[in-house]
Nucleic acid binder design. Structure first.
Lengths: 250, 250
DNA sequence: CGTCAGTTTGACACGAATCAAAGTGAGTGG
DNA sequence: CCACTCACTTTGATTCGTGTCAAACTGACG
């Protein structure tokens, strides 16, 4: 599936809604100019579309502009592991330049709007704009840290702790992006996605979710989650406070 | 625990045994000069020593010169997850600059020799040597990819598959570093370490290991593993072929 | 010979997977 | 406006893999 370039609808970087978002640090004028020239277009992925395939190479790097997605890896049979959820500002595809082929697939959960950058010019970014190069490394280290946290959850936590962790994790990320409404936020993932992310079966995920709801910690409705007892949920999750500092954007 | 700087025993980068190792790409003369100046010393960590602590900040970045170690994260109780094993050439501490504090601990399995680089000069690396900046990002993306693979194993594979995967993974990495002897290699980790890395209990790890041995796939002896049936073990692991291309070194 | 870390074994309990089936609600077409 | 479908959620019964508990074994070392 070739990414379709929505050239005519491209937003100029200066007006990028993400730059306006206080979660991200601001570009210098030179950086902005470069990023604008680096950006070769935008693309849209409809919900359910797999737009990067494990094992294939990708000509582009992407920044999520809008919407939710996830990265996953599959086993030879039909088991799959969701290794990360993608939210606005997330940078995808770095593994392309490193290994020649993608090590994971990326699928859209909602309609996903993405900025495209030709990987052939990544070197230019490092060489002409070391600040941006540093940012790329920064983002990569952040992703790695999230993956480690996820690994801790899947390897050591019980089912209810895992679910509590994932909810808190997603909530905190959404909150940083101002995508929450009070203690509720929209989560365009279903219970199967939660199960695949946490290494649980669908049935057990459902039962655990209901039990958390029974304990008055959360309310799950298809498409949205509300946190009813923040303190209790975080205690159960055993999750550290989120990092609220500004982060870079490419 | 402050790192002890073994200044007088410092190896000049030009004679670094890792550079000679064909697993790594060679530095240009300028890069070599910079790396030499960037390196502020060496340190030794004795087996069992935790030399980077989750939650503390680290003044240095490290490259493993010699020996084995591991990165781990702990839960409020005594559960812990080993998120990665460290082998020569691995670069640690990038998360230091990103978050102000380390997100994981690092412990030595054998006597560990490490190169120290002051994180305060990381910016200089990116700005004066974009090639090295690119390499830092490359290494970070590689680590992330290994973490994802690990997550797939812990989240989706059965106990015997996980153990097969870990053995194959470690074997392939060691082989790339020419640290194997035929189908055997030394693994200075005990069964508790395997258990902590794979999200299994010690007892079940032991039983599974014995079963793999019973099936003629491997031979475990304290400190070393021999692969008796490479094909069978890899089939069980469902693990992709290793990446054998040269990789960068900092 | 005693100690200690690491390994091994057996009995049992429990959390999570699996199997099977029904419930819900949005969307569609008659 | 009422069937009908389809994706998703929910529940109960049962099985199975893995954890836990308890104890013995092994080999290195002092």
């Amino acid at each position: 599936m070739k990414p379709r370039v929505a050239g005519s609808f491209t937003v100029p970087c200066a007006k990028c809604p993400l730059i306006a978002n206080p979660a991200f640090r601001k570009f210098t004028p030179e950086e902005l100019r470069f990023v604008q020239s680096f950006k070769s277009g935008e693309t849209i992925a409809e919900p359910g579309t797999v737009f990067l395939h494990e094992g294939q190479s990708s000509e582009y790097l992407y920044t999520v502009l809008q919407g939710w997605g996830f990265k996953s890896k599959a086993l030879p049979d039909d088991r799959r592991q969701i290794v990360a959820f993608l939210l606005p500002g997330d940078f995808v595809g770095l593994q392309g330049p490193v290994f020649d082929e993608m090590q994971h697939s990326v699928e859209a959960l909602t309609r996903l709007k993405l900025c495209m950058f030709p990987r052939s010019r990544l070197w230019e970014l490092f060489s002409n704009h070391p600040g941006l190069g540093y940012d790329v490394a920064w983002l990569s280290a952040r992703t790695e840290s999230i993956a480690d946290e996820h690994l801790l959850a899947v390897g050591q936590r019980s089912a209810s702790e895992r679910i509590a962790y994932l909810i808190v994790h997603l909530f905190d990320r959404c909150k940083g992006l101002q995508m929450t409404k009070g203690s509720a936020f929209s989560v365009p993932a279903n219970q199967q996605h939660f199960a695949d992310a946490l290494g649980l079966s669908l049935v057990h995920t459902n039962k655990t979710l209901r039990r958390l709801q029974g304990r008055g910690l959360i309310r799950w409705s298809p498409g949205a989650i509300e946190i009813l007892n923040d303190r209790g949920l975080r205690d159960l999750a055993g999750h550290p406070a989120p990092d609220t500092r500004q982060r870079p954007l490419i």
